[in-house]
Design a protein around this nucleic acid. Structure first.
Lengths: 150, 150
DNA sequence: TGACAGATGCAACTGGTTTGCAATAGCGTG
DNA sequence: CACGCTATTGCAAACCAGTTGCATCTGTCA
C-alpha cells in the first residue's frame, strides 16, 4: 500500500506547506481519506477514524474536511441526498454516475461532454469556472449474460 | 398576462385532477410560481406570497412545493448552495448555467450532451433515470468591446 | 346547509453542519 | 529539553433548511 502512504505524505505536505500543524487527529483523518476508495460523508469518515481513536470528535472531521477542501487536497460533492461526500483530489477530473438502487457511485470522464459544455457556455457568453454533472441510473441486466466483467 | 393566467389554470387543473383541494393559499402560491421567471427558493416564494396574504405560513409553502413536485407540476433543483429552488415544469427539459458572480441562472439545452450521457451510461451498463448538469461560469466581456481584461 | 376528510398555522423537532469557549498540544525558541 | 505562544481540539449549544404532530379551520360534495 505504498500508494496510500504516499497519498498521506502528499496530504501532510500540503498542510505543512500551508503552515498548518500536523496533529494526531489530522494524521488519522488523512489516512482514512487516503485509504477510502469510495465517496464517504463526514459521518462515514468519522466512524472509520473513531475506530482508531475514540477521542476524535465529529466537529474535528468537519473542520478538517473544510480545511482540506480549501487546500484543494480533497473534493466535496453533494449528490441528490444533500449530504457532502468527499474524495481525494489527486486524480484526474471526472464526473459521477450514481446507481439509484444501490447508491453506488461510478466515476467516468468524457472529454466530448466537457468540450460541448465549453462550447455551450461560450455561446451564452460565459466561460466555465466549474461544473457539476451527475447521472442517476439503473443497472441494465447484461445482455449476453456472459460472466466475468466488473 | 394571459400566459400566467393559463399557467395558473394549468396548475389548478393538475391539482383538481389529483383530487386535491383548491385552497386560498394554494391559489396564491400557484400564482406566485406562475409569475416567477427566476428560480426562487421556498423562502422567496413565501416572501412574495406573504405580501399578498400575511396569514400564510412557510410550512404551507413547503408542503405545497412538495405536493406540486410529486404532481410533476414543478421541478426542484438544488444548486451549489444546497437550498431547493423551484420552477414550473411546463417547458421542455433544460439544464442550467449559473453565473458565479451574480447568481443569475441561465437555461440551456443540448441534445448532443444528452446523447453523450446516454452513451456513456450505456457503456457502463446503466440506463439513465435522470441527471443533473450545472455549469458555473463567469460572463465573458463581449468580444468587440475593447476594455482590457484579465 | 352539514358533515367530514383534507389543509393550515404554529411550534416543536430533525439531521447535517458550524461555532463559541475553555482546555490541550504542536512547534519554534532559548 | 523545557517554555510559551497560538493553532487545534472536544464539547455543547447554535444554526438552518426542511418536516411534522396536533388542534383548528375550510373546501367540497351530498
Amino acid at each position: 500500500m505504498t500508494g496510500i502512504d504516499q497519498r498521506v505524505a502528499g496530504f501532510e505536505g500540503q498542510l505543512r506547506d500551508a503552515g498548518l500543524r500536523m496533529t494526531q487527529q489530522r494524521r488519522l483523518i488523512l489516512r482514512v481519506l487516503a485509504e477510502a476508495d469510495d465517496h464517504p460523508d463526514a459521518k462515514g469518515i468519522f466512524t472509520r477514524a473513531f475506530a482508531q481513536d475514540p477521542t476524535l470528535s465529529l466537529s474535528t472531521v468537519y473542520r478538517t474536511m473544510k480545511l482540506l477542501e480549501t487546500q484543494g487536497a480533497i473534493e466535496r460533492h453533494a449528490f441528490e441526498d444533500g449530504v457532502s461526500r468527499y474524495e481525494h483530489a489527486d486524480q484526474q477530473h471526472h464526473d459521477h454516475l450514481i446507481d439509484v438502487e444501490s447508491g453506488q457511485v461510478v466515476e467516468f470522464s468524457s472529454p466530448e461532454i466537457e468540450a460541448l459544455q465549453a462550447k455551450i457556455a461560450a455561446e451564452l457568453g460565459y466561460e466555465i469556472v466549474r461544473h457539476r454533472l451527475e447521472l442517476y441510473g439503473r443497472k441494465i441486466p447484461a445482455p449476453g449474460k456472459r460472466r466475468g466483467r466488473r
